[in-house]
Amino acid sequence: MPPASTQPRVPVEERLFSLVLALLATETGLTKSEILSTVQGYRQKYSISGDNANLERQFERDKDDIRDLGVPLETVDSPGQVGNNHNLRYRIPRGAYDLPADIRFSPEETTLLNLAAMVWREGSLSGESRRAILKLRSLGVTPDEPVLGYAPSLRVREAAFEPLSTALEKNAIVRFSYLKPSEADAQLRTVEPLALIQHQGRWHLYAQEPESGATKTFLLRRIVSQIVLTGTTFIPPVGNHAARALEELDDVWNSHSAVVQVEPGTDASTRLFKRRSTTALPNGSFELHYSDINIFADELAGFGPEVLVVSPAALRAAVLSRLHRTAADHA
């Protein structure tokens, strides 16, 4: 015999599971009062004559939680009562819920996806990747045993990443203070987030200014305040923003080049040579590319006497002033 199903306290997951099952099983949808009065986990708390305000709020939160998981919970008007909010009906259309039949993954692909999920195992998006893997396992495919073991990890150190990814999801306009290295004070920015991209190991926000419509790229590490999600939403322009943002960053990268003398056989020589798009010049110097002069100057300063910047003059000056600063701070 199964254990009794009506216990005094129904666990959250049982209530959510029952809600999904009930809404998947209905073609025409269920009204809120039908749900609250009949679905396991709600019905136990439902009062026929009384006030169900708490239970209604619970249902609203549950709907959000379920939608977060990618379950397409939708509302439809009751037949003959279009526009009547009190008689909205809720359902989960099967076609939009079920993983399409042609989307299946080979053992090799499953291995790659497991690795891709492992990348996020700490911090940001760890919940998403964990749940994606559960769904992947649902398909019953056993991954190939990889030849070489990998333990990749991407740790987003910037606190701004998580609220910004939420804002992206909700198309919410955000506000934050941004400190440009050339400016003494941080500026308050209000923007529409379009994409979060990682370029050369650094996370950037690609966003649009509400008034001008101009797109801007912000380095997450230069955001010096909390991210405020304003209550206002926007309609993002059509297009693959992440791809465009990466292209723009590549253009910036390619357009900035520096010539640096590097002592052979040093740490600088090995590591700078392996840097993306480095070329060794006939005289032994390296031509290097970079996105941001201040960040690159920090990186080069770390190599101390192993490097000497030849050009551009601004980078040369930036590295030298950093070395003087460090020497003075430790005198």
Binding site: D68, L69, G70, V71, P72, A96, Y97, D98, L99, L112, L113, L115, A116, A117, M118, V119, W120, L125, E128, S129, R131, A132, K135, S138, L139, Y150, P152, L154, S165, E169, Q198
Partner: peptide, 19 residues
């Protein structure tokens, strides 16, 4: 099986790009 959420798919796609 259920579909992936938009964020779940994005996490896996970005993970593949990283690798």
């Amino acid at each position: 099986s259920p579909r992936f959420s938009a964020r779940e798919a994005a996490a896996l796609i970005a993970g593949l790009q990283y690798l």
